[in-house]
Nucleic acid binder design. Structure first.
Length: 577
RNA sequence: GCGCCCUUAGCUCAACUGGAUAGAGCACCUGCCUUCUAAGCAGGGGGUUACAGGUUCGAGUCCUGUAGGGCGCACCA
């Protein structure tokens, strides 16, 4: 079981091979032309040069071959267009057979990865003592979606929040507590005040900074008193983070941080020194990672500062060791701001050079994303110039959904709790979809109106269509799978039927490039196609029993797919809305 | 100075990795609640894909250059 375009590709590959044409040119895709033809293959033109033939002639050979062969009962029409496009239209009987197969397929035709392979995903990346703001949105939402996708693809996917809990900011807080002579219970509110205060003071005053550096070093060396206090405010901080992540429905399997790599660092540095990879330079310890043929001058990865303290790159490298030991993953995916691409290039090179992550054992991927800008194209700020907190954003979206619900006739018989539950699901779907539908690589404009919009290409639209189907199936008394002995395809539902078969192609593409927006796009098209079908056709009131059953099956299949994709994207469908 | 990324409709974004007439949503205009949820559907207008060359049967996509924007270049994370 696979998508129709994949099946047709197999058939086309056979035809190409039989005619001594390169099979890799045989790929069949959904037709770009809206009307008329259903699928197309562009391989004749690609093969023309090497075969020294006219592309139309090649296309004709392929078409003749296919018409002669037994697969001819598949094609309603197969013809040549333009410079050599092979256009394919399928027989309804073949489409019907395919749907029948799809209806009983557990995974919609999506292939499953070999068992026992792990992938670690590094996303979220909140910092201790800092309030989570909209900047954490992308990493969390994209990362969580990719984790769910990897899981569905059959991998043992492990999401790690990888907190910033080990750098100089920790020393800033500890030294600030010293200066305050503080000895009570640390609260979230306190932390929110202390950190910015300490950070500013350190920037302005070199001596104050020295205190922070000193405290950082002591902490990293295992000072008892500091460790105790550190543990205390880490726990407080994590409680706050969990609140935010829970509200967004972002899940982590591990709550590790930079500090968890600490036990690996000393051994790692010694090993790198022994291998001659780590060297002293200006009092610091570095790993040169430049290679012949580099276009740019790649600075070395610094492991130890001249004062002996570790850095971001040190913990990142050691974290790979830690992950290798605990999970032995085939891949580690970092969902981190694109601006850090140089840093990851350095770490990845050092990991390969040192054998910490041999190239053929662990694949290291930086799935970077663009910077979030405000409407003016500059990094996003609220109207008063501050940073918008995540909680604020979530509650804005929820409130808008609440208002929308209060206006609706439907909500009259709902109690408070049900309304709040729906408003939450709708609000979160709006936020997540607004973010996920963008290709992750490019910078994007953070538009609060778009984030909290419920019309058009939005999360709530997808929820709405799903809810409509669910309601329809409920009224029709359909609960479990519908197996159609006979499936009837008509002009009103053919487009939806064909689209339903294409999920595997889109899932594969999204996985390959780590781009959830491909799934967003497919889900939207599917919902739109369904909505059109829903508007044009009678379903429950259809008199033709075979057609009615076929259409109910289509509804259910659409619901199942939307439900799967929404869950992969981290959205929940309410019972009604 | 060196390097990376970006520039597509008024706005926000797609375009299956080189394919046919570049698609969606928002906004604007016209219809549709007496069929199963109108957070919806049907239809309309809106484009020299920043610019100039090049490669190719074929370029938004690849190569070169120019302009504009963003970012990064060892003791922050």
């Amino acid at each position: 079981m696979s998508s129709l375009s994949q099946k047709l590709t197999f058939i086309m590959e056979d035809a190409f091979s039989a005619l001594d044409l390169p099979a890799e040119n045989a790929r069949v895709s959904v037709s770009a032309q809206a009307q008329g033809t259903q699928f197309q293959c562009n391989g004749a033109m690609a093969s023309a040069k090497a075969a020294r033939k006219n592309p139309r002639e090649i296309a004709q050979n392929v078409v003749d071959h296919l018409k002669d062969s037994k697969s001819s009962d598949i094609f309603e029409d197969i013809s040549i267009g333009g410079p050599g496009f092979i256009n394919i239209t399928l027989k309804d009987a073949y489409i019907a057979d395919n749907v029948k197969e799809l209806l009983t397929s557990e995974r919609f035709g999506i292939a499953s990865a070999p068992q026992g392979q792990s992938i670690v995903l590094d996303y979220g990346g909140p910092n201790i003592a800092k309030a989570m703001h909209v900047g954490h949105l992308r990493s969390s939402i994209i990362g969580d979606a990719l984790r769910r996708m990897c899981l569905y693809a059959g991998y043992n996917a492990i999401g790690d929040v990888h907190m910033g809990d080990w750098g100089t900011p920790m020393g800033m807080i500890l030294s600030e507590l010293d200066l305050m002579k503080f000895d009570g219970e640390i609260t979230m509110e306190m932390l929110a005040e202390i950190y910015p205060k300490a950070s500013t003071a350190c920037k302005e005053d070199k001596e104050r900074m020295a205190l922070a550096r000193d405290a950082t070093k002591k902490l990293q060396e295992g000072d008892g008193e500091y460790t105790k206090k550190w543990r205390e405010f880490i726990d407080v901080s994590i409680t706050g983070m969990k609140k935010n992540f829970d509200a967004m429905g972002v899940h982590f399997d591990e709550w590790k941080g930079e500090s968890d790599a600490h036990p690996f660092i000393e051994g790692m540095i010694n090993d790198l020194r022994d291998k001659g990879l780590a060297i002293e330079s200006e009092g610091a310890v570095i790993v040169p990672v430049a290679q012949d043929g580099d276009k740019k001058e790649l600075p070395p990865l610094m492991l130890l500062k001249s004062d002996g303290a570790v850095l971001y790159g040190t913990t990142d490298l050691a974290t790979i060791m830690e992950r290798k030991k605990s999970h032995n993953p085939i891949k580690i995916i970092y969902i981190v701001d694109q601006r850090q691409s140089l840093h990851f290039e350095q770490v990845f090179r050092a990991a390969k050079l040192s054998g910490i992550a041999p190239e053929n054992e662990i694949e290291l991927v930086h799935a970077g994303f663009g910077t979030m800008n405000g409407a003016d194209g500059k990094p996003f700020k609220t109207r008063d110039g501050g940073v918008m907190r995540l909680e604020e954003l979530i509650s804005m979206a929820e409130k808008k959904a609440q208002t929308r619900l209060d206006e609706a006739e439907l909500a009259k018989d709902m109690d408070e709790a049900e309304r709040a539950g729906i408003a939450h699901k709708v609000g979160i779907a709006a936020l997540k979809f607004a973010d996920l539908q963008n290709n992750r690589i490019a910078d994007y404009i953070f538009d609060i109106d778009r984030m909290t919009s419920f019309e058009g290409k939005t999360g709530p639209y997808l929820l709405y269509q799903s809810v409509r189907i669910k309601s329809l199936l409920r009224k029709a008394g359909v609960s479990d799978g519908i197996a159609c002995d006979e499936f009837k395809v008509t002009d009103d539902d053919r487009a939806l039927t064909l689209l339903l078969s294409e999920l595997p192609s889109h899932f594969d593409a999204a996985m390959k490039n780590y781009t959830p927006h491909i799934l967003c796009d497919y889900a939207f098209k599917l919902a739109q196609e369904f909505s059109s079908f829903y508007g044009n056709c009678h379903i429950i009131s259809e008199r033709d029993e075979v057609l009615k059953l076929s259409r109910l099956a289509l509804c259910q299949q659409t619901y199942k797919q939307l439900s799967l994709i929404l869950s992969l994207l981290g959205m929940e469908i309410p019972e009604r809305m």
